[in-house]
């Protein structure tokens, strides 16, 4: 009996003492945090992807609570809906943004770009790009080792074994921008999703002169300027032998796609053209495939 009593007293006593120590320290060192931070964090997607420019969702929530009008704060993963709910928690105006998607600006598939040497180092685009220009004659194109696939938290990127290029899954891409930051060749761009996901862009980053670019890759932009001339909306500019389509000005008329001599301009998710039967889509062009996938 005595032993039981002693055990109860010792254990119970220890428990009470420790509990009071914990209670007191918790009181003493309590840091005041705006409860709204928790609320905002609840509303966020909790992906901690860094797409907003903050290291994690918590930091973004803090920034939202601190900011006066939510300017420049946008969660690309949650999009407008999440931002609306964040704004309603904080009683502020939400900033609306167009949904974006990542696109790969390189079409240098194995078929289009002959190899000129063999890389045998670490399978990392970053390491290879530190070493040299790449294993083809195009020093601007995709190195094909999938640094972008590795950083994508949403499983939206995968390497196509046949082409050697990464493929963006439009349904999964949240435009967090991780791939944009990871690619040492700067091949990814976040572009406006567009109505019905319809987009037109130049799938090439080669700044070499036309002949050289062509030599390195069959579908390189050669900076010929045909698209610039045909564009009725001044959406296309040529700089450093490379065309760029401004997605805000582009009206998706697809005239540039038709005139491009190297098929370096892509159209995504458009219905097949009426004369598609007559027009030969060159073998290996990814246009058809991407249209079909969504």
């Amino acid at each position: 009996m005595n032993i039981v009593l002693i055990a109860v007293i010792v254990l119970g006593g220890t428990g009470v003492i420790l509990a009071s120590v914990i209670f007191l320290t918790a009181r003493k060192f309590k840091v005041f945090e705006d409860p709204k931070i928790d609320e905002v964090q609840q509303a966020l997607p909790a992906a901690n992807c860094g797409g907003c420019g903050y290291p994690g969702c918590r930091n973004f929530a803090e920034a939202c609570v601190k900011s006066e009008n939510l300017d420049g704060l946008f969660c690309p993963v949650g999009g407008n809906e999440v931002m609306k709910s964040v704004a309603s928690i904080l009683g502020r105006e939400a900033v609306q943004a167009e949904p974006m998607l990542a696109v790969l600006r390189c079409n240098g598939t194995c078929a289009h770009r002959p190899k000129t040497n063999q890389y045998e180092g670490v399978s990392s685009c970053m390491a290879a790009s530190l070493l040299y220009g790449g294993d083809t004659a195009c020093t601007y194109g995709c190195l094909g080792m999938g640094d972008c696939v590795a950083v994508c938290q949403f499983d939206a990127l995968s390497m196509d074994k046949e082409t050697g290029l990464p493929v963006v899954d439009e349904a999964k891409c949240t435009a967090c921008g991780a791939c944009v930051r990871a690619c040492p060749k700067n091949l990814f761009e976040l572009r406006k999703k567009g109505p019905k996901s319809r987009r037109i862009f130049v799938s090439c980053m080669n700044k070499d002169k036309g002949a050289l670019a062509r030599k390195g890759c069959a579908v390189a932009c050669i900076g010929c300027g045909k698209c610039e001339q045909v564009c009725a909306f001044d959406a296309i500019t040529i700089k450093d032998n490379l065309a760029y389509i401004d997605y805000n000005a582009c009206r998706l008329c697809r005239k540039c796609v038709e005139v491009c001599p190297t098929n370096s301009i892509w159209e995504l998710n458009f219905p097949p053209r009426k004369k598609a039967a007559e027009q030969d889509v060159p073998a290996g062009t990814e246009t058809g495939k991407n249209t079909a996938s969504v």
């Binding site: 180092g121 990392s124 970053m126 390491a127």
Partner: peptide, 13 residues
């Protein structure tokens, strides 16, 4: 192991 390859990447970053 390709230690130096990775070290170079890290040094660059």
């Amino acid at each position: 192991r390709p230690l130096l390859d990775h070290l170079r990447v890290g040094k660059f970053k």
